[in-house]
Design a protein around this nucleic acid. Structure first.
Lengths: 162, 162
DNA sequence: GCCCGAGACGTGATAACATAACACAAATTT
DNA sequence: AAATTTGTGTTATGTTATCACGTCTCGGGC
């Protein structure tokens, strides 16, 4: 598997974890939100792995770092992060991933490679989206959208062709 | 809650269950698939309820009708139905619903009302979809897409305004 | 200073969702 | 007749998620 699956290309993220955490720190302070130690550590874990992690994977790491070892510890931290746009839940995988575009207003769309398990977050323009159109014609008011596609990423397509 | 939430409007489906089952029967025979008693009954259950049902809800009904009472019984029947386009899984709800457009080639999109729990299946044109565009620009090959929106349906918006 | 409510965290317990592994039966193939 | 495939049932277990309760801390109001 691709060791650093970010949008399906190699990437050195030795610094980007720290940068992203600092940015999260700043934006939380600005919004009056508490990025507490468990929450911050949870975000770091997601950023370090740079892939979709199950809540129990996160929990195991948190426990190893001296935080609580029971499921609610992980779920509460993940709820906070997802609620405030710092992470997303991939419904198809029952897993969580750090947001690739924090701060931006966006409806995230995910591309899940079933070959290498990489997950890429694509930026989307909400106004053009299919779901928005449907909503408009039916009178349905959307509060949250889930857009996820499963398939094969460019890297794995190339590999398979060999 | 809306007693007959089909696309968010009232609907008499006293006959449509039988019709849909007959149609499924026919298409399975044509495709060389076995619509066995458990599978057929599972489809009927989904059609009768006309809403998203958890696998264990389905299982309880199957057991009451004399079929097996263990989870695999329901999961296997639901797998068969979803695999062959007779039903869909709503990932956001971990629940299953009968397909509203069996036979058509379509990427289903769902509108989930968080107020009355109704789920509507919208027809979509795969070629226009947002995900297709993303796939095209990134070189990702999509095998399956999940499109689900949560929000408030027209009926509940009207009710809330009163 | 003290009380109090809100928010955060930790715990044990349990609920809800899903699959693995195996036995048996029927239908089909060899 | 034996082997293979497909379907159904069972037991057991694995995985994901929430409930309920006690404690601590931090701010604001008295």
């Amino acid at each position: 598997m691709d060791p650093n699956p970010i949008g399906f290309h190699q990437h050195d993220h030795s610094h980007c974890v720290a940068d992203a955490v600092a940015e999260a720190d700043r934006s939380c302070r600005e919004a009056g939100l508490q990025l507490t130690p468990v929450r911050k550590r949870t975000l770091e874990i997601l950023l370090e792995e740079h892939r979709a992690l199950g809540a129990y994977d996160v929990l195991a790491r948190l426990a190893k770092d001296g935080f609580g070892s029971q499921p609610p510890v992980a779920y509460r931290a993940l709820d906070f992060l997802t609620k405030h746009g710092l992470a997303h839940k991939i419904e198809r995988l029952n897993a969580f991933i750090a947001c690739a575009h924090p701060g931006d207003i966006h409806t995230p769309a995910f591309l899940i490679c079933t070959s290498c398990n990489a997950v890429a977050e694509a930026e989307t323009d909400p106004s053009h989206s299919l779901l928005s159109q449907i909503a408009e014609t039916t009178g349905f008011h959307i509060s949250k959208a889930v857009l996820e596609a499963e398939g094969t990423c460019p890297n794995c397509i190339t590999d398979a062709a060999k």
